[in-house]
Every structure is written in C-alpha cells, then in structure tokens.
Design a protein around this nucleic acid. Sequence first.
DNA 1: AAGGTGACCGGCC
DNA 2: TGGCCGGCCACCT
Length: 110
Amino acid sequence: MTKPNDNFFERVYSIVRQIPYGKVTSYGAIAKALGTARSARMVGWAMNVSHHLEDVPAHRVVNRKGLLTGKLHFDGTNLMQQLLENEGIQVRDSQIIDFDTHFWEPDIQQ
DNA sequence: AAGGTGACCGGCC
DNA sequence: TGGCCGGCCACCT
C-alpha cells in the first residue's frame, strides 16, 4: 500500500504548503529541497495529482522563469494569475513581474 | 517489461 | 530571459 516512492509526493506537498502568503517558488527549488534537483518534472506531476488538494497552493509554484506554465491546468485559464494577483504578486501575460523579489526558497530540512 | 510522457532545468547562441 | 536541444527521473499504459 505505501510504497517508498509515494513519500515523494507527500514531500512535495509538504514543501508547497510551507510557501508563505504572497511568495512563489519554482519546481526546481522544490526538487532541490527534496534532494532530487533532477526530478523537477516530477514536482509538476505531483502538482497535477495534488490539484484536488486545497492545502496545496499550486498557484504559488511556477517555473524558474517566473512563467505560469501550469496555468492551463487550472480550472480557469487565468485563475492562477488571479490568485497570484490577489496575493499582491504582479503578473502580466502569465509572467510574474519581479520574480526574484517574490521568490521564496524552500526550507531544505525535510 | 518496455516505451512514451511531462505544470522542468541548464547550457549555449 | 529571448529561443532551441539534451538530459533526467518518476509515473502511466
């Protein structure tokens, strides 16, 4: 039932839940915090599975360019952007302005 | 069991 | 960060 790899998903959720309000991070940063920087793609996959979880603010997770690559996976086309703007993050054309300013580095202690 | 896929990243021009 | 290519790793059929 519980396979070792299943923990991987929970690890991702745990990190994403730690993202403060009004802050964003990248898939690679989360993957690095997990110790698997090369599995950044898996982080995105985990997000897709955790999409049904309310505790996981997937809208605060973008790629390293600050581009809302996963906005297409949300209910609305611009829902992800709306959520970010609601937190005080300026977004233009699916792109976060001052990405480095709002960037938050995950706590590498899991 | 093998192949394909993906909400990525890093390097190079 | 503008664009393209290769690599990487877990999940799915």
